[in-house]
Amino acid sequence: MSSITLSHLTVDFGDGAKGLDDVSLDVDSNEFIALVGPSGSGKTTLLRSIAGFLEPTSGTISIDGKDISNTPPERRCMGMVFQQHAVWPHMSVADNVAYPLKMAKVGHADRSARVHRALELVGLGDFGRRKPVSLSGGQRQRVALARAIVADPTVLLLDEALSALDEPLRDSLRRELVSLTRREGLTTVHVTHDRAEALAIADRIVVLDKGRIQQVATPQKLLARPASPQVAAFIADATILDAHRDAHEVICPSFGLSWPAPDSADISCVGVLPSHVELTAPGTPGAVDAIVTSALFEYNRFSVTAQVGADTTFRASTTTRPDVGDTVGLRISTPLMY
């Protein structure tokens, strides 16, 4: 088990763009961290910096307190799995998994034993002699995972490692991956564009935007209290509305809505989460009329998008499916205030 410390990490690209901008982060031993954010937010840049594939412009990367900023990737004792499994088709499964050990000149007997254990850990104990062409996509990704852990890394890095898989295989491997990292004591950093996946499997989630960390929190805290309007919109489908404080009320003039004001602090906008929105009959006092633009079934409820005016949409959840084009009322309880 190893902890990771990033201190004031900055990555400048040749075209003047910033990949990372003064990023500091502590990852505890055996912690599973997910990096999320919009495209270009810096999540893959951060992962590749930890791996050693990108050299930071400034700042440091430490493992268990030891600065590894200038240590080459092969000496960082990290395993990495990419979106595309990169399993070599001309090698057997066992030879694919053994490759890092062979490069490290591990003896044949020890190498064979460690390959067998790694394949057992990923559920491919009897697949060593097979060629990758005979495997499914999920099995090939398991081979890549076995190859990443065979050298007993203290840190596992996952770059969209599950995104190429179809459900329910993806869900199954997701569960196996979390169990494996817990069992083997692996500190894990996982880049994903799938918010639901991050919320399901991570101990903490790091939300990035424009190369900077916007929030680090447990899934529960992240959903309950996004730190900024941008985080609320990205992670929780919040609708952001201009608002202002007027004595003891927060007023949203565009929709004629108001809520009790918190004890202190200025208010410039509010974040309306789906949990703040109740669907009612159109014309209900205190509600805003809206047009249903989509209604998608999600397990035991429907996720509804409803539009107010030309360009403002709200998300809501209901047990009864409305039709697209229906007029409904939206009753909005006290939102997040920023």
Score class of each variant (00 low, 15 high):
residue 265 A to F: 11
residue 254 S to M: 13
residue 201 I to H: 06
residue 178 V to G: 02
residue 240 I to Y: 03
residue 267 I to M: 03
residue 200 A to C: 03
residue 230 Q to V: 13
residue 251 I to C: 02
residue 225 R to N: 14
residue 247 A to N: 13
residue 184 E to K: 07
residue 222 L to N: 10
residue 261 A to V: 10
residue 238 A to D: 01
residue 184 E to W: 08
residue 268 S to F: 10
residue 262 P to W: 04
residue 232 A to C: 09
residue 233 A to H: 10
residue 243 A to H: 04
residue 191 V to T: 02
residue 180 L to F: 06
residue 204 R to T: 06
residue 251 I to K: 10
residue 257 L to Q: 04
residue 244 H to G: 11
residue 233 A to Y: 01
residue 209 D to S: 15
residue 221 K to Y: 00
residue 230 Q to I: 12
residue 250 V to W: 11
residue 218 T to K: 00
residue 238 A to Y: 08
residue 223 L to W: 02
residue 252 C to Q: 14
residue 214 Q to W: 03
residue 218 T to P: 00
residue 224 A to C: 06
residue 215 Q to G: 09
residue 210 K to H: 13
residue 233 A to K: 13
residue 247 A to H: 13
residue 252 C to G: 09
residue 220 Q to N: 11
residue 263 D to C: 09
residue 183 R to N: 13
residue 252 C to T: 12
residue 269 C to H: 12
residue 243 A to L: 05
residue 200 A to G: 04
residue 191 V to C: 01
residue 201 I to Y: 07
residue 220 Q to E: 14
residue 253 P to E: 14
residue 198 A to W: 07
residue 220 Q to W: 02
residue 208 L to K: 00
residue 265 A to N: 14
residue 186 L to A: 08
residue 256 G to F: 11
residue 261 A to N: 11
residue 217 A to W: 03
residue 210 K to R: 15
residue 188 T to L: 05
residue 189 V to S: 04
residue 184 E to D: 04
residue 190 H to S: 05
residue 210 K to F: 06
residue 212 R to K: 15
residue 206 V to W: 06
residue 268 S to W: 09
residue 194 D to V: 05
residue 262 P to H: 06
residue 264 S to C: 05
residue 181 T to Q: 14
residue 192 T to S: 07
residue 207 V to K: 01
residue 191 V to E: 06
residue 189 V to C: 01
residue 198 A to G: 08
residue 194 D to M: 06
residue 185 G to P: 06
residue 235 I to C: 05
residue 221 K to M: 09
residue 184 E to T: 08
residue 243 A to N: 08
residue 232 A to N: 01
residue 235 I to M: 15
residue 224 A to G: 08
residue 228 S to D: 08
residue 252 C to E: 15
residue 258 S to H: 15
residue 258 S to N: 14
residue 190 H to V: 07
residue 223 L to K: 12
residue 200 A to T: 11
residue 249 E to Q: 15
residue 216 V to F: 02
residue 256 G to M: 12
residue 238 A to M: 10
residue 199 L to N: 08
residue 179 S to V: 11
residue 253 P to N: 13
residue 239 T to E: 07
residue 224 A to L: 12
residue 191 V to P: 09
residue 198 A to Y: 10
residue 238 A to E: 03
residue 186 L to Y: 02
residue 247 A to T: 12
residue 248 H to R: 15
residue 212 R to G: 12
residue 234 F to P: 08
residue 257 L to A: 05
residue 216 V to G: 07
residue 227 A to D: 00
residue 209 D to L: 11
residue 251 I to N: 06
residue 183 R to M: 12
residue 253 P to S: 14
residue 198 A to F: 08
residue 225 R to K: 14
residue 235 I to G: 02
